[in-house]
Simulated scan of single mutants.
Amino acid sequence: MGTAVGDERRRGRDETEEERADRKWGELIQEVRVAQTGVQILFGFLLTVVFTPRYASLGETEHAIYLVTVVLGACATGALIGPVSLHRLVSGRRVKPEAVTWASRMTFTGLVLLLATMTSALLLILRVATHDAYVPYLVTAVVAWYLLFWFGIPMWTRHRYTSR
């Protein structure tokens, strides 16, 4: 039922370093699966654009934005697939805590590159679709939205609720 007076609530898990690494690895892989799917669909779509009739009629600026977007998409894909390769290459070597740290860094890098890819793709699409002066403002607003939900709220939550 209740706790006795003077008892403190225990926080955290009672797990070994290896158990913690196993749990963190499982959580990380689930996160990577979500991001990988999105970036791979976006990258696949981007690869087809160059083969459309409309591509030839784009201006130099749009071609440059497209090339930057494709390269960013390729880099994001590589960073988000990196944890899988890392796991395969170090599996059974008793370095799971270190592998989790590196995989986490790769995933964060992939998310930053995904943000850049989506920003660049949005800029290209809106420039081609509208040619209006408000495109930079729309792109800036969407990037601010991504930054808020991908980094701002998570960092605020981390700061606000992390026990010391």
Rank of each mutant, 00 (worst) to 15 (best):
M1K: 06
G6T: 07
D7P: 02
R10T: 13
G12A: 04
R13C: 01
R13D: 04
D14H: 08
D14I: 06
E17Q: 13
E17A: 15
E18L: 14
D22T: 05
D22V: 10
Q30A: 15
Q30D: 13
E31V: 05
V32P: 02
R33Q: 15
V34D: 00
Q36W: 00
G38Q: 08
G38T: 10
G38A: 09
V39N: 10
V39I: 14
L42R: 00
L42G: 03
G44K: 09
F45A: 04
F45P: 01
L46D: 04
L47H: 10
T48K: 09
T48D: 08
V49F: 07
F51D: 11
R54T: 02
A56S: 14
A56V: 13
S57C: 00
L58H: 10
T61C: 00
T69P: 04
V70T: 06
A74I: 08
A76P: 05
G78A: 07
I81S: 01
P83I: 01
P83G: 02
P83S: 00
V84E: 01
S85W: 09
S85D: 04
S85V: 14
H87G: 03
V90M: 08
S91D: 02
S91C: 01
R93W: 01
R93Y: 02
P97Q: 10
E98P: 01
W102S: 03
W102T: 02
W102H: 05
S104H: 08
F108T: 09
T109A: 14
G110I: 07
L113K: 09
L114G: 11
L115I: 05
A116I: 12
T117K: 11
M118S: 09
S120A: 15
A121Q: 06
L123W: 14
L123Q: 12
L124E: 07
I125H: 06
R127E: 15
R127H: 12
V128M: 04
A129D: 08
T130C: 00
T130H: 09
T130W: 08
H131F: 08
A133C: 05
A133R: 12
Y134M: 10
Y137T: 10
V139P: 05
T140C: 01
A141W: 03
V143T: 15
V143F: 07
A144T: 15
Y146L: 14
L147Q: 07
L147A: 15
L148A: 12
L148P: 00
F149Y: 10
W150V: 10
W150K: 07
F151I: 15
G152I: 13
R160N: 08
Y161I: 02
T162C: 00
R164D: 08
R164F: 04
